[in-house]
Design a protein around this nucleic acid. Structure first.
Lengths: 216, 216
DNA sequence: CCCGAAATTATACGCTTGCAGAATTACCGG
DNA sequence: CCGGTAATTCTGCAAGCGTATAATTTCGGG
């Protein structure tokens, strides 16, 4: 009884690469890099292991491509949240903070990916650059928004102090993001984004809570 | 030529377990869980792989013990920082925040361990409990300190709002801890703890910066 | 001084891993 | 409808993994 060869369909390069990257990200998010074996990735992508080497020179290349996509998606998703917002800087800042603390940015998958990639990022300068790009693409818009808000309320700061405000606000968001993602059952729905908007406002002395109704 | 057996010295159980745990933590901090193989741990501890199974029933047990020690050390180190402080609640809170953002709590090793353990913590309820213990042993004292400070300045909050303040302050500290640990070259020495004390003060409306001279 | 218990090493096994190359199959252009 | 191309599967390999167990060495007590 010769068992027959598995049937398959041909797909384009972009499709298959996308499938493989998505599978790798899923596995890393759930179980860390150790869970993303060549065989597991292939199985989740619905192909056989050998195909990976047809689209990526090595497994490390695939992981690198996956990280790049992860960072790019995060940045795109979040910068897109400002498009629907009006012109009022305070409303825009409130929305920016709120959205940073909602899914998909705040969920266990994201922090799982973040932690899973940390050591790869640390030990590979190429990945380190990808990381920095993503970090700044989050902090820079935040700094601009804060600057606009302060200017709108009559205050304005020298660049260095403005940057410090952005770092602190960003840290507050990051910390809430971290806690909410790691211990999700400790927070009620909306508690985290609400807390974020409220406390970033307190940090900067801005009445952000006035814009809470616009959310959700 | 029969190559001779390796010489060795007998050590007590505590000593060897400690060595093995330390070796495992080193490896996880540097390269994540995947770097902490039985053979690598043994080599770094200066013994042969078989010995691990003499002191730990399984590798998973060793990793669990390592995580427990890591969490315990962090909590001990940090709660010890309050012992040298005076009775003034404001000074105590300032010191608490300052110390949380200095080495050894803020360094790349700590965040490396934190990230390395994340997925193990997620998927193992026993480790999850260890984690929660450590997290609360940090947040609870913070909440008490904030309560004392607010009481001392005449304000006092219902428990629920006090807890929210503690969560936010803790998040701010966590976020700064994260950023400082991941991108250490982006911050000058003392910039991070100084920022932390200043911004936690801003968050709570407390004059914490008055106590900055006592640090260092 | 030596003997027994326990600490430590050595060896081996079955399994998984990433990678390589040959074999096969699906699909497109004629 | 058919042939060529390349997308995909299949098989195999060497290395590394955690674990099990037997063989040795150390060292304190008689």
């Amino acid at each position: 009884m010769t068992q027959e060869r598995r049937k398959f369909r041909r797909e384009g390069e972009a499709q298959r690469q996308g499938d493989l990257i998505a599978a790798a990200l899923d596995l890393i998010a759930e179980g860390g890099p150790q869970a993303a074996t060549v065989r597991a990735i292939a199985q989740r992508a619905g192909v056989t292991p050998g195909l990976i080497r047809h689209y990526f020179r090595t497994k490390e290349d695939l992981i690198g491509a996956a990280y790049a996509q992860f960072v790019r998606r995060m940045a795109e998703d979040h910068s897109a949240t400002l498009e629907g917002a009006g012109p009022d800087p305070l409303a825009r800042l409130a929305r920016f903070v709120w959205r940073a603390l909602c899914p998909p940015l705040t969920d266990s998958r994201t922090v799982g990916l973040w932690a899973g990639f940390l050591h790869l990022v640390r030990n590979d300068p190429r990945m380190r650059n990808i990381h920095r790009t993503g970090y700044l693409s989050f902090r820079d818009p935040l700094e601009s928004l804060i600057g606009e808000c302060l200017a709108a309320t009559g205050r304005s700061l020298p660049p260095r102090q403005l940057q410090a405000e952005a770092i602190a606000a960003n840290a507050l968001i990051d910390g809430l993001w971290l806690e909410g993602s790691v211990l999700p059952e400790d927070f009620q729905p909306d508690e985290l984004p609400r807390l974020g908007v409220e406390k970033v406002g307190a940090l900067l002395g801005l009445p952000l809570t006035d814009h809470l109704e616009d959310m959700q």
